[in-house]
Design a protein around this nucleic acid. Structure first.
Lengths: 199, 199
DNA sequence: CCCTGAAGTCAACAGGTGTTGGCCCACGGG
DNA sequence: CCCGTGGGCCAACACCTGTTGACTTCAGGG
């Protein structure tokens, strides 16, 4: 679902890796943008701040991405990287899900992608729609394939539980949640999700 | 925890109800502010828009609340209205919690209070702190009183699940969650929360 | 009646925003 | 050597924001 367009097929000054100069600054802008969007959301992130982080002029951001919204779209182009679920026994699914998302959220270096989406989707309709699309394109199909229909109908509430975890732990930073270790969360949330699915 | 200060003790033009003129416009401002904050969050809500909704001049908002942040604080002064939990049997607690919050969120006319808080807390540190305080002041004490210690330690994850429901249903509006009826949600989420608590 | 103080209006300021267009520099191929 | 082009910078525009202060209305008590 990558929308990154590899245009400019004409030859230009190329790096040793075959990467153009512009590709590196483009990547620098994107990295800075993801970080800012993840921490402050769409409205509070300014083009000027992103540019400063990437050590370039604000107008360069416009040159590369055209508009703040298109920069945002580019930053939202993420992949949940859900593992292949057809191989795992049904009974292991809940724990695998909880562990997978905890690992992604707490990876080091942090992979801001999901937090960008979540933080922004709450106040930005464009991001909200992206979230719904991502769910429909990546989560729903992967899960309905391996679940009995009755359980698949509850996948919405499973998402609610997982997103609620991200919300309280990483965005609201509620002590009652941040105090828990990864293992404690897995141990108590996985059974709850199993119960939600009825498996 | 009401921070509303009833100053201006001097007599003034009073209404039949004993309410000053200013009290009515103050209330109108607050109502408009809550609506805007609930729908668009802190950053996207402008003083001018609130004033327009309340049919007054923007400078009046400043006169009454001093600052946008103080208006925000006033709008955040909410009460979860948790029922007395000491009376209910432990086994009924999960269903009661789910039902209580669903009822509050879907009350008609809508009571924006909780949505203001949730929508804003994600991008506004001040609101996030308020949320943590509200949790610590209202949820934690009411629940730890009636729960065995082992279950009380998991109240954070219960909040995560309830807030996750609000997030996906009212803010992100994910079809897989909005499609469910209130009763369906109660029927599948309450057992999951019971499992989380281990009761 | 006037006159005081509260309630409300108007116009402006100062700062920050996304966005634009003109200019400059480096550099590699002719 | 020139010079065209891609990459980058600077300064400005137009707009919107929170906020302020001076002015007007208006009701009611002396």
């Amino acid at each position: 679902m990558k929308t990154t367009d590899e245009n400019q097929p004409l030859a230009g000054a190329q790096d040793a890796d075959g990467a153009r100069r512009s590709d590196r600054t483009r990547a620098a802008i994107l990295r800075a943008a993801r970080e800012r969007f993840a921490e402050h959301g769409f409205e509070r992130t300014t083009i000027r701040a992103v540019a400063a982080d990437a050590d370039i002029d604000p107008s360069m951001v416009m040159r590369y991405f055209g508009t703040k919204e298109r920069l945002f779209d580019a930053a939202l182009d993420i992949d949940l990287r859900l593992p292949d679920l057809t191989a795992v026994p049904l009974a292991d699914l809940p724990e695998l899900l909880v562990r997978h998302f905890l690992d992604r959220w707490e990876s080091d270096p942090p992979d801001d992608g999901l937090l960008v989406l979540l933080r922004s989707a709450v106040t930005n309709e464009r991001a909200a729609q992206r979230t719904r699309e991502m769910f429909a394109a990546q989560v729903a199909p992967a899960v309905t394939e391996v679940l009995p229909p009755r359980a698949a109908a509850r996948i919405g509430l499973v998402s609610a539980q997982l997103l609620g975890l991200a919300l309280t732990r990483y965005l609201l930073r509620m002590p009652a949640v941040t105090e828990l270790t990864k293992e404690e969360i897995v141990a108590t949330l996985a059974p709850a999700i199993a119960r939600t699915l009825g498996v």
